[in-house]
Amino acid sequence: MDIQKLRDEAKRALGRKEIEYLIGYKKGSYGFRISPCFIETKEEVDQLTFSPLCSLSLVNYLTIEGKPLLPADEKKSKAKKVALLVRGCDSRALNQIIAEGGISPDQLYVIGIPCSGVIDLKKIEARFPHTPDPVDVVEENGNYIITINDQSHTVPVDELKAETCKTCQYPTPLTCKKLIGDKRAGNPPQYEDIQILEAQPPEEKWQFWQNQFSRCIRCYACRNSCPLCYCDGCILEKLKPQWVKRSVDTNENFMFHITRAFHLAGRCISCGECERVCPVDIPLMKLNRKMEKDVKELFDFEAGLDPEVKPLLNTFAIEDPEDFIL
């Protein structure tokens, strides 16, 4: 993707008087890191970047408590808009949140970027440890060309790409004002890893998830980096009644993750960020993708494809299957 086109478009957007600021990515403070950034003036636009290292969903910043830089009096600024960079998954997240009434589309100016998938930071940092200086990464012909201190390294895409992105069905933003770069075709649906888990006997599944959840420390990085986890007053924080105990043990961790997976059923847009930020490497996308697969099979529904379509589990259709109801 041509960064200059992105910057030009950002300049154009910031030139519009209704646009308050733009949420994008800039180079991070070290190594492979990318930082979200909030750009208010055309002069700052040159900070903007986009590369396979851009992992976090910027959609988070539209719903986060005390939205950054938004004027205090939001009523007065009804006419104001926020410009936002989205990838395919982010665009689905936006559609889903708009369908749920969580964001008004009138407040957004969306710049879309067809995405070739993000690099799993854990993988690239394991491959190139001790890299404090900022690096450049581009994708070319099935390889990542990684430039560290003027030295180029070529690594096959498959070795570093985030697992979720390898099965991405919608790399191109579905709904956006401007699209930078050429559309990309998605992959066909692929659930082999989920089918393997499904085929296991219950005891094995139980054991598998017990092992995974036993190490969760409940830092909530998964929840807080999830663009769809935007509830005001998450059920996990409720004290009356207290649905999930604060104690961090396998049982309570199960309760947390299963509750979260259920709340994301028909809503998760498979960005995979929850799994990537987990400090103890819990494969959360296996849960979310199982839900995604079930929702697809039972209701022929995919989250976030159209902001006009009502959220699946908020609606009822007479022909809905009910054979899973005991």
């Binding site: 986060i64 950054p68 604060r246 930020v277």
Partner: peptide, 25 residues
């Protein structure tokens, strides 16, 4: 703080952070 997403990963992974809650279970 504008880009902070408010998770607890920094404090939980910190060897010197010690704040705690007390709960009856």
């Amino acid at each position: 703080a504008s880009k902070c997403i408010g998770c607890g990963i920094c404090t939980y992974s910190c060897p010197t952070c010690y704040c705690f809650d007390m709960q009856d279970e």
